[in-house]
Design a protein around this nucleic acid. Sequence first.
RNA 1: GGCGGGGUAGCCAAGUGGUAAGGCAGGGCUCUGCAAAAGCCUUAUGCGUCGGUUCGAUUCCGACCCUCGCCUCCA
Length: 470
Amino acid sequence: MALRLFNTRTRSVEEFIPRDPAGKKVGIYCCGPTVHNYAHIGNFRTFVFADLLRRYLGFRGYEVRHVMNITDVEDKIIGAARASGITAQEHTLRYEKAFFEDFNALKCLPPDESPRATEFIEPIVELIGKLVDRGLAYRATDGSVYFSIEKYRKAGHQYGQLVNLNFDQMRVGERVSADEYDKESFADFALWKAQVPDDGSVTWPSPWGSGRPGWHIECSAMSMRLLGASFDMHLGGEDLVFPHHEDEIAQSEGAGLQEPGQPFVKYWVHASHLLVEGKKMSKSLGNFYTLRDLQAKGFDGREIRYVLLSANYRASLNFTLESLNGARTALARLDECLGKLEELRGGETAPAPDLLDAFRQAMDDDLNISAAWGCVFDWVREANRRLSENAVSPEQASAWLAAWAGIDSVLGIGVKRDSEAPAEIVALLEARQAARKARDFQRADAIRDELKAAGWVIEDTPKGPRPKRI
RNA sequence: GGCGGGGUAGCCAAGUGGUAAGGCAGGGCUCUGCAAAAGCCUUAUGCGUCGGUUCGAUUCCGACCCUCGCCUCCA
């Protein structure tokens, strides 16, 4: 069985076959953050999804090269930097740093490359030059360079590979910004934006005059430079399907760098948006959360990751504070089971095949994460049942833990290590045990309260009391 | 207006032409001196509404309702 994924380009679930003739190497590009502010939980759904896919490909034995760009030149950045009197670069570096802190907190593996748009101006200019040379781009009277959809189509290309486009029915002009009136056609988009006074020092020289890159061109230039003119997978949020990704295809295929018959990207995979408390996330509704907002409410990255991984990437996920609380309980149950197996384990054993097979079968089916969690919790229940009957051998425990290690290389949830109790806690524990032995339960319970106040809860097990950090 | 997703228990969420995974919450029970943020068991005659096809539909078809996304720089 092979991995199957929904390809936006064909609007169907397809078997994943890498471009690499050896079937090994896989190139992935994911549209990364615009570092103008803290990223919100919706942004992170996409990045956690990309992380899941990239990890699963690794689990399936592929050699993944994962590129995620950093958009560090854009209107909001320029505006925000001006407003706070710092340079655009000071502004973007600050939020880029914050982004990766959040990214790490969510247990996302670092991409192999995270190129900044501002460090790829040369390839960008070069790519625009190719499009101008091929007659697909033109310099307008305002000095900006635009991509001509009409000329692209006349050259035999298809514009509208990812969406059904009907320009006649579109609500034209409602959101066209005032600085793009010089375009030949409303559908054309900017490749190079001529410098305007507000840009300040955020400007680079080019054959068409000073300016800065348009939104879409950076992704074409960086992805092709780092992964080749054709590569396997391009990921992003569903809102990027049009126009961003459609325009990327136009620019990249318009430059004609691909081998004949080869598309720019083989598989386009998009993550749906999330809702928060059943509503579209918005600042006015008060349901707009950054990762930091949730951390301030006491939730950690692991719990947030669990919730973000609780639904299939193509379904809109309803992110709620209640589900975050549920994540804590569910993960504690998983940790508890893993901890017990850890105590029992003995020797090196091959991973338990049933568990891994069930997990793989679920994930192969368009990353059916819900079914995968179903496998995990079915297993937890089964393991607990057998543990309570003392029917788990050290070899079985090792085999299960080895299988879990494989699964967790994909889920990235990890095991919460029981922190070692400090000496004073151990002393209290022993005092309580002594009191219990003397059947002085009043004193024993008093000590338990004292421990609880110190942040430790006690579980009396057949093997003796176990301290647990609250 | 055009195009594309969704509507499954109190909440989150899989899935199937043959009678509903999993998680949380709730209920019951077990271990325990008592407990536990320990464990087990349990919880939808029902899958937006109304029709149709079928021996049988939550699953296929049609209509309608609600909701989300995109329609030019938003993950």
